[in-house]
Design a protein around this nucleic acid. Structure first.
Lengths: 347, 347
DNA sequence: GAAAAATATGGAACCGGTTCCATATCGCCG
DNA sequence: CGGCGATATGGAACCGGTTCCATATTTTTC
């Protein structure tokens, strides 16, 4: 409807002056600017971002590709990204990438490249070299979150170390028969989170020469996943460990619920440690290694914004390791005195 | 870089013919189309959606305003919307609307109106008349989800009826001392979900002339919210009801966890019914009135797409009531035989 | 006080497509 | 076989801004 030409006419200036007055770049006298702004307000003028983007080549829009929006970690990350972007005047276009390869290709070829976004944040998605090249050749900053991607800056926690720390905590309390309920290797995300946490678990055991006391069960990365497996594992005295390292807090919470149901005291009869710092963890007194996904999202957004503002020159390949915090609550303590470190399934 | 002009040159045709060949509208001979498409593929041409939008006035982008992304209901809705839009070739731009009035105004004035979106889906947000007018005057379809907004199509479940049904279920099982743990009226969303569910609860009691046996406590709409309050309420024999109607499944789950902790048998000593159909509800055997937020999101997206394709003429003001389903599980049964319907705090 | 620099403004080109209009060719009908 | 409608294509205008360049005015500098 109303174009900048209308504003210019009403204010009695040229299009170019009106543009300068409204966008704030270039010389405009105060008096003129005032008249233009007034005219714009009067007729309810808003710039067409399409027209602006067409000539500037910038959309002030960041694409976020993410595998889930309805899982705690990803929802938190998304929240953090959104807040940061909106604060900087950027829009966020959401692409929930399913595992369908065809759909994934379409999103890349058809949506992302379409000059609709200035940059891309890939959350929990391992981009292929081709995908990275595609974006890079368009000069669009890319940042990965949740794991390493070759050739682009990525942020993530050290999952191996996290699991190692959690496990070491139990070992230092005196536990030996420790079980890891972690994610199924088959079902894991692009980034090898499940594998890495399992590796950290094994590493800790190896450090204390306790490999033969450790065991591992694969479960879905959810509360019901932990719950269901725990009902089986805890009910069987031969299988029952004195402590469990959960692959994530959801699993840990499921275990706690199952333990309570089975009448097993936590932590006196069973210690449980989680990884993540889920919202529900404090309520269950869960000792856990907290990461802060919302902050990670905000940080990823900030890295992207830095790149976009041209401040940071792209150092091709840098990894930022995000901090974690160990929250010791009431789900872990020393093992029962009568524990005799019986036979356990070897890892 | 490579514009349609390049494609045209390589294919040996004019810009206009190239445009017709690629966009599929207007006459182009098969042979020519083939050459153009080949040329486009060769040089990796993708249309500039900005340029296209500028002239067509369509962005193939839908804005979603939503108060949270990290809460179950909203995350599910978002998921449903996203799947549907991407399937139809539309982008989704996410605006997480905080309660900050200033930020909200900015998002409307600055982002949404900026000709960046073809339509808006407002989830759990009550748009003001001014906001509706703004969008409407731009000819952009708007659809609300989660409650009624004057003048635009909205989808939502009948929250009064949902709570009434849940409560009636308990009454028909023989319960009289029924407590409602619902959302705080002060803290509720724009749509009066909390108030409506409370109203439905009272309606059911009134239907059976049981008002004086009912009671109400306000809690945060979360698992810890239900848990914390339940610990207080259930511990006090004078307060303890024989059944609880939770304002949402999260609260109900919190109550179940608290009850187990206090050694109160569910359902034999305490029946609990929820509203929502949360992912975790089956695991807790929670009887609940299920709604299906992902489907609601998909439906909202479809309504918007219909409007955009021009099929459905805008009938100004229609409300679509979404279906719910009563999932009876193991958290509800008849009250203990010895219940003497003691004095309860009146509603 | 003249030259240089900074400020202010307008005109026109341009971003990369789509679409209207004009022109040309072709097939088919009476 | 003249004429009409369908098909095919090119030229040019246009969408709504931004920005380069030229010109004019003011301010600063020596």
């Amino acid at each position: 409807m109303s174009a900048i030409a209308d504003v210019a006419r009403i204010a009695g200036v040229s299009k170019s002056t009106a543009s300068r007055a409204l966008s704030g770049r270039g010389y405009v006298s105060d008096a003129t600017r005032e008249r233009v702004v007034q005219a714009a307000t009067d007729i309810g003028y808003v710039v067409s971002s399409n027209a602006a983007s067409l000539v500037t080549g910038q959309t002030r829009n960041v694409g976020v590709v993410i595998p889930y929006v309805n899982r705690w970690f990803f929802a938190e990350v998304l929240d953090g990204i959104e807040s940061t972007l909106i604060g900087a005047g950027y829009d966020l276009t959401l692409y929930r990438l399913s595992s369908d390869a065809e759909q994934r290709r379409r999103i890349f070829d058809y949506f992302l490249v379409r000059k609709r976004v200035d940059a891309v944040i890939a959350v929990g998605i391992e981009l292929t070299a081709h995908e990275v090249d595609q974006l890079r050749s368009l000069g669009k900053p890319i940042v990965g979150l949740g794991g390493a991607i070759d050739g682009i800056p990525t942020l993530n926690i050290d999952d191996v170390e996290a699991a190692r720390l959690a496990t070491t905590h139990l070992i230092s309390l005196g536990h030996r028969r420790i079980m890891h309920l972690g994610g199924d290797q088959e079902e894991q995300m692009d980034f090898r989170v499940h594998a890495q946490r399992l590796a950290g678990f094994r590493l800790a055991l190896a450090d204390s020469a306790l490999e033969r006391f450790g065991s591992f069960r694969a479960v879905p990365f959810s509360i019901p996943g932990g719950y269901t497996m725990a009902l089986q594992v805890l009910a069987d005295p031969r299988l029952r460990p004195t402590a469990i390292v959960a692959g994530c807090d959801e699993i840990a919470i499921g275990v706690i619920i199952a333990a309570r149901q089975l009448g097993i005291q936590v932590p006196s009869q069973l210690s449980i440690v989680g990884i993540d710092g889920h919202d529900l963890s404090p309520m269950f007194g869960l000792t856990t290694l907290e990461q802060f996904p919302a902050r990670q999202g905000a940080m990823a957004a900030n890295v992207v914004l830095d790149r976009l503002s041209g401040h940071a020159e792209e150092p091709i390949d840098n990894r930022i390791t995000m901090p974690v915090a160990f929250a010791v609550r009431t789900s872990t303590t020393a093992p029962p005195a009568d524990d005799s470190a019986g036979d356990a399934v070897a890892v």
